[in-house]
């Protein structure tokens, strides 16, 4: 029990052998596995962080684009409204101009028709007056000179009444 024997040296050799084998089979293997896993986890975390940064960047770009699109849409709507308003004004002005032209032409035509009707009426009245005068005077009037004279008379009467 307390004798110093060769067991001492054999145990030392056994311990070295056990240390060498367990180092290969247990300690280094588990430690390298844990290192690999932590490396992998770290890598995945870095990937996730870079993916998040990229997503944030894309989000910022999207938001900027969205803001621009909103501004642009607002501008387009405003422009369309302005153009619509201008077109409206143009159409209204054009319609008013056309209406004025039509009215003016109608008035001119009406005054022309009135004048012509008056002239026709004056001719007719003169002819009737000559006929009436001839019947009263018992002689036949009806030559061109008589008619012209009667018409001149009526015109003079008209112009005197008009004054």
């Amino acid at each position: 029990m307390l004798r110093f024997t060769v067991t001492f040296f054999i145990t030392i050799a056994n311990l070295f052998v056990l240390y060498w084998i367990l180092r290969k089979v247990l300690w280094d293997r588990v430690a390298s596995f844990l290192d690999e896993r932590s490396r992998k986890v770290r890598g995945e975390l870095e990937d996730a962080a870079s993916a998040k940064a990229r997503a944030d960047e894309l989000k910022d770009r999207y938001e900027a684009l969205l803001a621009n699109a909103e501004n642009e849409a607002e501008w387009v709507v405003k422009d369309a409204e302005d153009r619509g308003r201008a077109e409206y004004r143009r159409i209204v002005a054009e319609a008013e101009a056309q209406a004025d032209g039509i009215r003016r032409r109608a008035e001119e035509r009406a005054s022309f028709e009135l004048r012509r009707a008056r002239e026709e009426l004056a001719g007719e009245v003169a002819r009737l007056a000559v006929a009436a005068a001839a019947r009263i005077a018992g002689r036949s009037l009806g030559g061109a000179d008589d008619a012209a004279e009667a018409e001149a008379f009526i015109r003079a009467a008209e112009s005197g009444r008009g004054r």
Binding site: I10, V25, V30
Partner: peptide, 30 residues
Amino acid sequence: IAISDTVVMTWIVMAILIALSAAATRRMKM
């Protein structure tokens, strides 16, 4: 070289530890 019962038991303990370690670390999963 006299091999004592403690040396034999040392070998048995070593065999147990090596076998268990090898079995435990054989297929490690993430």
